[in-house]
């Protein structure tokens, strides 16, 4: 049986309570919006690029503990990364929460590894990935809001 504590790790709960980089960035920062139409979660990612590097990143929105913590930790782990590094982290993260990654793969994820337990709760995978899909949209300058459906 899946254990709730595997998903609701202390670090996750702490980020959900006091999310980091919960603010807006003024234009010309990029901005993308994501929705989870099933539960009404919303997420807006702001992204300031300096050449190929993520100079600053922030988010706003509302959602469950998993989606808030995921967005908060995303901003922490991607700040200062290049586009290519960020894409790699996104792919690894996605594989981990959908239960497709061998354990060895996770080392590159650092603190984000706390989300591994989400893979035991299929109904919650979209909560963990909403901010990431929204980030992708911001990175690629998509105009349409992202939805998880």
């Amino acid at each position: 049986m899946a254990d709730l504590r595997d998903m609701y790790q202390e670090v996750i709960l702490e980020h959900a309570k006091s999310p980091r980089n919960y603010r807006t960035l003024a234009a010309p920062a990029r901005k993308a919006e994501g929705f989870n139409p099933l539960c009404g979660d919303r997420c807006t990612i702001f992204l300031a690029m300096q050449g190929d590097v993520i100079a600053d990143i922030a988010f706003q929105g509302n959602g469950c503990a998993i989606s808030r913590a995921s967005a908060s930790m995303l901003t922490q782990s991607l700040k200062g990364k290049t586009k290519a590094e960020a894409e790699k982290i996104f792919n690894n993260f996605h594989r981990m929460v959908t239960g497709q990654s061998p354990n060895g793969d996770r080392a590159s994820l650092g603190k984000l590894e706390v989300f591994a337990g989400v893979s035991e709760f299929p109904a919650r995978v979209k909560c963990a990935t909403l901010a990431w899909h929204t980030f992708e949209a911001a990175l690629h300058g998509d105009q349409e809001p992202v939805t998880t459906e």
Binding site: L4, M7, Y8, C39, D41, G63, C64, A65, I66, F121, A123, R124, C127
Partner: peptide, 8 residues
């Protein structure tokens, strides 16, 4: 507490 977390 978000209802989604309560539901899980």
């Amino acid at each position: 507490i978000h209802p989604h977390d309560i539901g899980t």
